[in-house]
Design a binder for these strands. Sequence first.
DNA 1: GCGACAG
DNA 2: ATCTTGTCGC
Length: 222
Amino acid sequence: MPKSESEARAIQEKLRREIRLFDDFDTLETIAGVDVGYDIENGLAHASIVTMSIEDLRPIEAVEASVPVDFPYIPGLLAFREIPAVLDALDGLVTRPDLFMVDGQGIAHPRRMGIAAHLGVLLNKPAIGVAKSRLTGRYDMPGPHKGEQSALMASGEQIGVVLRSKDEVNPLFISPGHRLSMKTAVDITLRCLTRFKLPEPTRLADKLSKVRPTKQPSLLSA
DNA sequence: GCGACAG
DNA sequence: ATCTTGTCGC
């Protein structure tokens, strides 16, 4: 873990060279949603990963892990705060998913190293960033209906797509993280949308990552 | 120097 | 992210 902000940025500058933004994968049958919630009073980061079939969006496996938070929230350095918990949860997975969908940015980041790109490079797996708000870049608001899009631009380049995932609700910010193109990132996200604002992988992971008062029935039990 | 700023 | 009740809309 980096001990300073400058050290963390240096790590990002180094890792960004590994990013590949073109489709580079074989099978794409399973996708895993990744999200992290917080238990403020206990100083814990609670990560959850939900693997499902891309074909029918049926949950296959769900794991969780809580670890002490050791890095503060600093815009642009979110990965250093959340990835430790994610890697811990990953150990509990029986089957490795073909692709990861992370709650946060892919390359739509000041140094093109959002948490989805960071995780993708660490695991050397395809990864997509699905954020609920903008970190960096300029864009025009897309039309009000589901499926409408606009480009997220920065430094004269497209770093993401602003996507209306549901009628009349704030749009999502999609960006590739690793081993897939901008187009594929959006195509896959669209295929994971149902009636909600968030695509299924992230939506289910989000529910599990929130610290619950008591135990709830498993997502896989039904 | 002044704002902006994923979760 | 998290803190929180009511309220609008299907």
